[in-house]
Design a binder for these strands. Structure first.
Lengths: 212, 212
DNA sequence: GCGATAACTTACCGGCCAGTCAGTAAGTGA
DNA sequence: TCACTTACTGACTGGCCGGTAAGTTATCGC
């Protein structure tokens, strides 16, 4: 008679990742404070009580979302940093291009969340500032240095120029994940990146006999 | 005997501006959702009830904060756009420099608030996207066009390059108003801007007999 | 099958805070 | 100085939501 499918299943292993994914979606839409844990639970196909079996509080869930979304991209960036003999302009273009693309996607909501909640989660803000932003800046500075050392770039101040490479990533992350859904005029990520990298590479290029 | 100062004074004219200023501070620290109207009232030196005499709801107060903080800067930007015969590189440097400086100051919290709350205030988000972002992009595109027309810049795609000029403004606004308070490594706004504008101006400069 | 276990649900609690309103006292003007 | 207006106060409330715990049911070992 009652061979209906069970009302729920035990899936202890899969839950945490599903909850984190659901929470990322929910936070992306409404922000941390405004999303109800009941909504997160519903998106994950569970009840609120179950959520508390896996995460002790809303705050800890938030931290898990940030860490788990960020770490794969951090690892990927590190991997890319691995030695490569390609010319520095191409290398720079590849690294920044990959990050701009990632920022235009799902990962881009993380900066948005962190910026919004920095005041309420100082430890997370410091983690992000040091482990992500500062690390990224060092990476960019090293790439520029490499170009200078190899005679491909002018002798600019690499440390001060590094944020200029981070800026388009941030712009793309926030535009795609906050304003564009409400805007009339879209930005084409590929076109924007092409124009940006064109200017930067021309701007950094070693001079070959011009005014100076 | 009781010549104490009065417990409060009637200051109908001054209240709204004071409340908006207090709210901007409070929102800047904790974000919109997490700030209590009682805190805003205390900062403004009034009671919560008084606040409701001037603003019908927390949402309307938020909108007033955004509009009143933004409009003076918009007007200033428009004014700067006014005809000027200086060379385009200098003009570009002045316009972007002024905006980067403004972003590093008080006005910078507005992008932060809007980005965080875009999902919850679609009309504000659209207003900002169209009236501020899109307008700024058009301004930058026009400046680049001007440089090209006068033979000072290479023939780049002005519309696609425009966001590259907006990016450092955004970076500065969010860095100063969200992450820097929790970070160890500061960014020097002037140094950053100098490096950025150096690269961009070199990158846009008309070619004078080099490889191509 | 048949407990035993633990993954999951549901109903509930308590604190917090936006928003209200009756009352109070600063100002006004005659 | 006194009657009147109104800017302002502050105690209160109603609903919302993070968090909890008692109860229910899938699953697994025997």
């Amino acid at each position: 008679m009652t061979d209906l499918p069970p009302r729920w299943r035990r899936r202890k292993d899969a839950r945490p990742a599903e909850i984190v994914a659901a929470a990322l979606d929910a936070f992306a839409e409404r922000g941390f404070a405004a999303t109800r844990l009941e909504d997160v639970a519903a998106r994950a196909g569970i009840s609120k009580g179950t959520l508390y079996l896996y995460f002790p509080s809303k705050e800890e869930l938030f931290k898990a979302v940030v860490r788990q979304t960020l770490l794969p991209n951090l690892a990927e960036a590190e991997r890319r940093l691995a030695t490569s003999d390609m010319p520095t302009p191409e290398m720079l273009s590849e690294i920044v291009g990959a990050l701009v693309a990632a920022a235009a996607g799902r990962m881009g909501v993380i900066p948005k969340l962190l910026i919004a909640e920095a005041g309420n989660f100082p430890d997370l803000a410091r983690f992000y500032a040091e482990e992500v932003v500062a690390r990224g800046m060092r990476l960019f500075a090293r790439v520029i240095q490499r170009g200078i050392a190899r005679g491909e770039f002018r002798a600019v101040d690499a440390v001060r120029a590094a944020p200029a490479l981070a800026a388009p990533i941030l712009l793309m992350a926030l535009w795609k994940n906050a304003l564009e859904p409400h805007a009339v005029h879209p930005i084409d990520p590929a076109g924007f990146f092409a124009a940006f990298i064109d200017i930067v590479l021309h701007g950094l290029a070693a001079e070959t006999g011009r005014k100076g």
